Simulated scan of single mutants.
Amino acid sequence: MVLLGTLVNAALIVIGSIIGRLLKGIPENMKQTVMSAIGIAVVVLGIQMSFESDNFVLVIICLVFGGVIGEWIDLDKWLNRLGQYIEVKFGSKDKGGSIAQGFVTGTLIFVIGAMGVLGALNGGLRNDHELLISKGIIDGFTSIILAATLGIGVLLSAIPVAIYQGAIALFATQITKIVPEAALKLFLQEMTATGGIMIIAIGMNLLGLTKIRVANLLPSLIVVAIAVAFIHNF
């Protein structure tokens, strides 16, 4: 079953979020301390990811062009509107956090990174789900803390994770036929580094140091794919 790893990953996010909401009664000062710890950990993770690139100038160029495209489309606004729409459907804001904020933050953290892409490809090509299940365990523990501090909206981030990774798993055979192995390896490397910068921005937002519209940087990942295709072919 090619979607097993994806479904386990999404399910662990849901389970972790539910557990996190059961812990919502923890004192406010404890929540702030935990959120600071998460923010710092996320920044460190982003720094580690950003060192994957062998050509940091390429990462900067992709972030600049991706940021311009993202601001033009204003993905951040649309993601927040989707979260707010869900919030209205729930009837009110989740006590202890905004559903929109939890949804957007969770989606960005769980979607960005090469682990999901590699895991989905392994699942689709070899029926090997170990990597995605490992990612699911990490995401599950992360979602516990995020849901305890940001609210139940974190649970809803399981939906884009399932769609994104599921699509890659289902079309894995076609992807590997079209994309040469060397190009795919380069893409994953540069995507990890570019995603790492976004992860750093998410961590800084969680720490309250910045208010970066990270969702508007997501087109950078598409720009990375275009740049890699150009480099590989020329």
Rank of each mutant, 00 (worst) to 15 (best):
G123Q: 00
I112D: 04
I38V: 14
W78L: 11
G46R: 05
G96A: 02
V59K: 10
R81A: 09
Q101P: 13
L131N: 01
S53T: 15
Y85Q: 06
L63E: 04
I112G: 02
V117Y: 03
K89R: 06
P27L: 07
N122H: 02
N122F: 01
I61F: 15
W72M: 11
N122G: 03
L131T: 05
N127T: 02
I144R: 07
G83D: 00
L118C: 03
V111S: 07
E87Q: 11
G91T: 04
G46H: 09
A114K: 02
G70T: 08
A41M: 13
I73E: 11
I69E: 06
E71P: 03
G46Q: 09
G83K: 00
G67N: 06
D74M: 03
D94W: 06
E71W: 13
K95R: 12
I138D: 06
E52R: 15
A120C: 01
F56T: 15
M35R: 05
E28Y: 06
K93C: 07
V59C: 12
G70F: 03
F103E: 05
D74P: 01
G124R: 02
Q84E: 15
G67L: 11
G124Y: 00
I60S: 13
L82I: 11
T107S: 14
F65G: 13
I112T: 08
V44W: 10
I47L: 12
G124D: 00
I38F: 12
C62A: 15
I112H: 07
G106R: 07
C62T: 13
M115Y: 04
Q101Y: 13
I144G: 10
H129A: 02
M49I: 06
I99T: 08
A120I: 02
Q101L: 12
G106K: 04
I26S: 09
P27D: 05
A41L: 13
A100M: 08
Q32C: 10
M115L: 12
T105N: 02
L75D: 09
T33D: 10
I61R: 11
F141D: 08
G124K: 02
Q32I: 12
N122L: 01
M115T: 11
M49D: 14
G119L: 01
G119K: 01
I109N: 02
F65C: 13
T33R: 12
G140Q: 08
H129Y: 04
G102T: 08
E87T: 09
E71Y: 12
D54L: 13
V44F: 13
F65M: 14
I38E: 05
F51Q: 12
A148H: 14
E130P: 00
V111I: 14
G66H: 08
I38W: 04
I133S: 01
K93N: 15
G124W: 01
G91C: 03
K89V: 03
Q32S: 15
Q84P: 08
L121F: 04
R126K: 14
G106W: 04
Q101G: 13
I69Y: 07
L146G: 05
T33L: 11
M115I: 14
K89E: 03
Q84G: 06
E71R: 10
E87G: 05
L75Y: 09
T105K: 02
G46S: 09
L132R: 01
K135C: 02
I144Y: 08
L45P: 13
S36R: 10
A120F: 01
G70M: 07
A100W: 04
